[in-house]
Design a protein around this nucleic acid. Structure first.
Length: 367
DNA sequence: TCTGGGGTCCTAGGACCC
DNA sequence: TCTGGGGTCCTAGGACCC
């Protein structure tokens, strides 16, 4: 019988930091920019369960988190460290499982053949101890026959548990949960469902009124299949990256377009460098602006062929920003909070020597 | 309380083609 | 002269996830 183990590392960034700072185990620890070190527009990236007891949550503005939990120990984020730890987890899982599907930096699913639910649950417990002992990382694991139910089970298993859902119990397991527990249902969809009287997954299992069926379309059909414990079509496994972007939020909102253009140049260079490392060429370039009122505008252009290097990226991005800015200047004239440079439609870079702009200037390429 | 920096997927309209 | 149906590509925006 085929099972899915859905593995989720608890409070991932904090747990990575605690490996280097065992003295902080058991304390309220928050990864993010320390608000006592001056004003910042940052948010909480990860909070230990001790900090969560004070009401601190991921994505909360750090000022709010500092007020809720004054005793917290703050640690600045170290993304390369977390990337390495994620690799360690995947490598460890690959020792035991043929198919390891990374689903985010702190989540992965593996396929398992096991005769019954008890046997699958035993394997999950072994994986959990293995990750704890070999990598010193705490995991929650959901065991089910589909990835989606496995994920929901892993959420219920947090922190540090294992939840096994037998195939015949899927609908009963899900029925009392709020629709919000479904991956893909956020606050907006939850509210739209509630307006039809659908609050729990059990309500969904009964079907949707005609008006709701029209409104939710394909996703509505998916929700109902899930709620009834029917077989689900699993998304494709590992694909290459589909897009890459870099953004920058200004410390204070900006009204001078030249200042934004300087930032765009720098973002384009960073992004081109990261794409070059992965040997990817891009064909679509976009620029996004988040305005002072937090709304967003984007402008995209697809090039006639795949491009690489920062010159082309930067020039295209600047042109898109000019268009976007003049449209705004003709109307509301809001200040810019965040600017982003975005690329997609990738093709592998060729071995042939590329265009001139992969050089930094005359002479041999630097580095 | 005042909201980061990454990403993915979906929808919808218009252009364009057969 | 005014017209169908289907498909793909492109763009913009939105919802959602970690």
């Amino acid at each position: 019988m085929r099972w899915v183990l859905y593995i989720d590392i608890d409070a991932f960034y904090v747990s990575c930091e605690l490996r280097d700072r065992p003295d902080l185990v058991g304390r309220a620890v928050i990864v993010g920019p320390d608000p006592s070190k001056g004003p910042t527009r940052g948010v909480v990236l990860s909070a230990s369960y001790e900090a969560r007891a004070f009401g601190v949550r991921s994505a909360m503005p750090v000022g709010e988190a500092g007020r809720r939990c004054p005793e917290a120990v703050w640690i600045a984020a170290d993304f390369p460290k977390y990337g390495r730890a994620a690799e360690e987890v995947r490598a460890r899982l690959a020792l035991r499982f043929d198919e390891v599907v990374p689903l985010s930096i702190d989540e992965a699913a593996v396929r398992l053949e096991a005769p019954d639910a008890d046997a699958a649950g035993t394997v999950a417990l072994e994986v959990q101890s293995d990750l704890r002992e070999s990598l010193r990382l705490p995991a929650s694991i959901g065991v089910a026959t589909s990835r989606a139910v496995g994920k929901i089970a892993s959420d219920r298993a947090k922190p540090g548990g294992v939840v096994v859902v037998r195939p015949e119990s899927v609908a009963a397991f899900l029925a009392p949960l709020p629709t919000r527990s479904i991956p893909g249902v956020g606050p907006k969809t939850e509210a739209r469902l509630a307006s039809f009287g659908i609050v729990t997954i059990g309500d969904l299992a009964k079907g949707l009124p005609l008006a709701a069926r029209r409104e939710f379309g394909d996703s509505g059909r998916y929700f109902i299949r899930l709620a009834r414990g029917e077989e689900l079509v699993e998304g494709p496994d590992v694909l290459g990256p589909r897009s890459r972007s870099s953004d920058r939020t200004f410390e204070t909102d900006v009204s001078d377009p030249r200042e934004v253009e300087v930032a765009i140049d720098r973002l384009a260079r960073e992004l081109a460098e990261s794409l070059a490392k992965e040997r990817l060429r891009y064909q679509t370039v976009a620029v996004g602006v988040r305005w002072e009122d937090f709304s967003r505008t984007t402008r995209a252009r697809t090039l006639t062929g795949a491009a690489e290097g920062s010159e082309r990226l930067s020039a295209t991005a600047r042109r898109l920003f000019e268009e976007l800015w003049s449209a705004e200047a003709a109307g509301r004239q809001r200040k810019v909070r965040t600017v982003s440079v975005h690329t997609e439609r990738f093709r592998p870079a060729t071995d042939r020597q590329r265009t001139l702009d992969s050089f930094d200037g005359p002479g041999p390429p630097v580095k």
